[in-house]
Nucleic acid binder design. Structure first.
Lengths: 204, 204
DNA sequence: TTTTTTCTACTGGTTTTCTGGTAGAACACA
DNA sequence: TGTGTTCTACCAGAAAACCAGTAGAAAAAA
């Protein structure tokens, strides 16, 4: 667990000790100590419970870095934040699930087991939040023109600029320009990052 | 609407005529006629209700093609299929929502209005299906090694092979090899398509 | 312990993307 | 009718990705 609230640490410790007495439980109170542990890889971390607000970082960033260092580690967000966008960000960052801190012991253990089992795991309240379609996240999307959306999808399809130009009956130069404008709007510098963002924003 | 069941067509026609008397309602009973209409673009299509099983194609493919031709058209899946994976595929293909055919008129119109409003729209039953985390979709994922998952995420972050090599302290050649292997496993031929697929499969 | 898989590394050549310019035509809208 | 936006188009050079091989070392699995 990566958690800086002593009370929560204590609670988790008790529950886990009782329910999974054989599991090795590691406790970190900052993101950096956790990442350091992953780097050294003394012990594999099979499952991590990440608090969202930590003294030195935030859950989303930490989750990304952790998954980069250790792709097989299963990450669960564990926080009081019930903001849909945040939860979605965690999932996009590779988290396998999300729990609100108000969960009871049975629900917590249920989620842990699901996650260890390769499933997505959410506490009941989070399920409701996810089911509720968001109108908010659309706001953050940079406005794309019709043509840009169209070309974005074709890039995601794996088509080259030449392919797209042929399909749309315009010059390849034109497509290159659109490509550039798209990357500029999303503030990225290659197609991979562009498509990742677009996928996260549900544009494709 | 793109729908080949006369009874459903009739039902939709009545409901829509009553609830949105000023809207122009176009009816297609095959995917191809619909796509043809989009190509000719005589009239903009603001919202499309797509049946999933059609004589000449399936909803997912049709949705993709339709969004390629007309990115601003809002697509709603409309079918009896309540398979979570299928619904997710539709959403990944650009659909703005999904309704089961058992919806009543008020729910239908509610979803249509939400969709026109730029929101995601789901019938109540679909919301439940989406909230329920799936274990199934994991099966279709090609098995990636730890290292590959790690590098995949870094590619999605927009990092170049050189960047990644520097970060992981290996040769850029190595990263290039991993890149190639990843693309081969996913059967795509560039990073954009790779990342799109990975995003759809929730690997990043 | 043998076998298989994964991770590593290289050559060399081709294709594509990315960067940083510029700029005219068409369109929408005020 | 002017103004801003979108779509189009071009050049040229640098950087990166892609392709088709091969292959040794390390680690995991049989």
């Amino acid at each position: 667990m990566v958690e800086d609230h002593p009370v929560v640490v204590e609670g988790l410790r008790r529950i886990l000790a009782q329910e999974m007495p054989h599991a090795a439980l590691l406790e970190f109170n900052t993101g950096e100590t956790f990442l350091q542990h992953l780097r050294e890889a003394q012990h594999l971390v099979t499952l991590a419970l990440l608090d969202i607000t930590l003294p030195d970082t935030n859950g989303v960033e930490l989750c990304q870095k952790a998954k980069n260092l250790s792709p097989d580690t299963c990450v669960l967000g564990f926080s009081n934040h019930n903001d849909r966008a945040l939860i979605m960000q965690m999932l996009s960052s590779g988290a396998s699930g999300y729990l609100l801190k108000n969960v009871g012991a049975p629900e917590l253990m249920q989620c842990v087991r699901e996650a260890l089992n390769g499933q997505m795991a959410f506490s009941d309240e989070v399920k409701k939040i996810i089911a509720r379609p968001s109108a908010a996240h659309v706001k953050a999307v940079p406005p794309l023109t019709k043509r840009e959306k169209q070309i974005l999808r074709m890039i995601a399809d794996g088509k080259t600029s030449a392919d797209i130009a042929a399909e749309l009956l315009v010059s390849p130069f034109t497509i290159e320009t659109h490509r550039r404008n798209l990357m500029q709007k999303f503030d990225v510098n290659n197609a991979a990052a562009l498509i990742r963002l677009a996928a996260q924003l549900q544009l494709i």
